[in-house]
Computed example of a mutant assay.
Amino acid sequence: MGLLLAAGACGPSVVPVSPETLTPARRAVVGGAPEPGFPTVAAIVPVPPFCGEPDEAARVLCTGTLVAPRVVLTAAHCVENADAPRVFSVVFAAETARASAAQRIRVVEGRLHPAWRPGVSDLGVLILASDAPVAPLAWAARAFPADGVGRLARVVGFGADGEGGSGLRRGGLSRITSVEADAFSIEAAPAMSCGGDSGGPVFIEQDGVERLVGVTSFGDLSCTTGTNSRVDVHADFIQVAIEDASRGAPVRTLVDPDVDACAQWCRAHADCPVGMACVARADGTRSCAVAGLEAGHFGPACTGAQGEHPCVKAGSACRLWLPCSEPRDATAPGGCAAAGGGNPGLIPLVLLAWSWGRGRRAKGG
């Protein structure tokens, strides 16, 4: 299935990335129940760049597990677009709509397992801009239990609950039906991961402790069976990401709307502030821009009313996003691009969740 986050207008002209208004009682693992524990299990959501699109309304794309202060383990198909993580936040709260700003941590990098392809080695990691507000899972590589078939496994995620809701951490028990070299399959007993639970953890009790053994990958359309990637056979990939992050990546600055972004020359995304990306310009140079938008810079304050240029989030303020050819003190009316009008200064960002074969579905988005 595909998910489109269109940057080009506001209101009805943007493909929705927000769920319908839902009551907490109806909001994610089918057949499961709200899960007050497992604070290391977090939701992965897009960060809308436009003012008037609240972060609290962002729809859950995938689920992940914090395995180091700045490392979130998830599925590869959740981060297969290398630029997509620039517009992601990881939400460390039991309910995404109620998360505070401190519980929303921006992502600065996504990594794919080098052997990943649909159905194989479906593991990825997200590197956070700052330490998560919760302690990471005490993860260690352990062999998958030899007597795994027939045992119960716990799935946890923020995805669909079977009643039209998502965004609430839920968990429940499934039963292991088969084990392969790279993955293992489960069936509902009575719970099962569903859309939006991609990348979420699967636990098995070992020595009296529930231990991480898998990452949710794909399943059938009715959310009654699923296949999960084994973490024991991919321990090296996970450990390398943890070690890289522990070395102290360069500190990424926050967005400063008073700095001329058109003069922020860059070679790679890492050269730009958090939430911005290094983009090519018509003259062949590269500069930092709000992730998902073309090269430009922040202009005057705006209110969200419709106008010639989009009104974007700039820290705690709302500012016009202007092409580099226009001065930053332009006095054009502020606001989002007119509905249906489009804007040459914006680029659609497509976040693709893979799927293949008849009757299969990726459990993302």
Score class of each variant (00 low, 15 high):
9 A>E: 14
10 C>A: 15
13 S>M: 04
14 V>I: 12
15 V>S: 13
17 V>Q: 12
20 E>I: 11
20 E>W: 09
21 T>W: 03
21 T>M: 03
34 P>E: 11
34 P>K: 07
35 E>V: 03
55 D>P: 00
59 R>K: 10
61 L>A: 05
61 L>R: 00
62 C>I: 06
70 R>K: 08
71 V>I: 13
75 A>K: 01
79 V>M: 08
80 E>H: 10
82 A>D: 11
83 D>T: 13
83 D>F: 06
85 P>Q: 11
91 V>S: 11
92 F>Q: 10
96 T>W: 02
99 A>V: 08
99 A>N: 11
102 A>C: 01
105 I>K: 12
110 G>N: 11
113 H>F: 04
114 P>E: 10
114 P>S: 09
116 W>I: 02
120 V>K: 12
126 L>V: 12
127 I>G: 02
129 A>G: 14
130 S>K: 14
130 S>Y: 00
130 S>I: 00
132 A>F: 07
133 P>K: 10
133 P>D: 09
133 P>E: 06
135 A>W: 00
143 A>Q: 14
145 P>H: 10
146 A>T: 14
146 A>M: 06
147 D>S: 13
147 D>L: 07
148 G>L: 13
149 V>H: 07
150 G>T: 09
159 G>H: 03
160 A>D: 14
161 D>P: 02
162 G>K: 07
163 E>I: 00
163 E>W: 03
164 G>W: 05
165 G>N: 09
170 R>P: 00
172 G>I: 01
172 G>M: 01
173 L>T: 00
176 I>D: 01
180 E>Y: 09
181 A>G: 13
183 A>T: 13
187 E>L: 07
188 A>W: 00
193 S>T: 12
193 S>C: 11
194 C>S: 15
195 G>S: 15
201 P>Y: 04
202 V>P: 05
210 E>D: 15
213 V>R: 08
215 V>K: 04
225 T>F: 01
227 T>I: 10
230 R>L: 06
235 A>Q: 09
236 D>K: 11
236 D>V: 13
238 I>A: 12
240 V>R: 15
246 S>H: 03
248 G>I: 07
248 G>Y: 04
256 D>G: 03
256 D>R: 10
257 P>S: 13
259 V>Y: 00
261 A>S: 15
266 C>A: 08
271 D>W: 03
276 M>L: 14
278 C>P: 03
281 R>C: 02
282 A>M: 10
284 G>V: 07
284 G>A: 09
301 A>Y: 07
302 C>S: 05
302 C>T: 03
305 A>Y: 02
306 Q>H: 06
314 A>F: 06
314 A>G: 10
318 C>V: 04
327 P>C: 12
331 T>A: 15
333 P>S: 12
334 G>T: 02
335 G>S: 08
338 A>F: 09
338 A>S: 04
344 P>S: 11
352 L>E: 14
355 S>R: 12
363 K>F: 14
364 G>L: 12
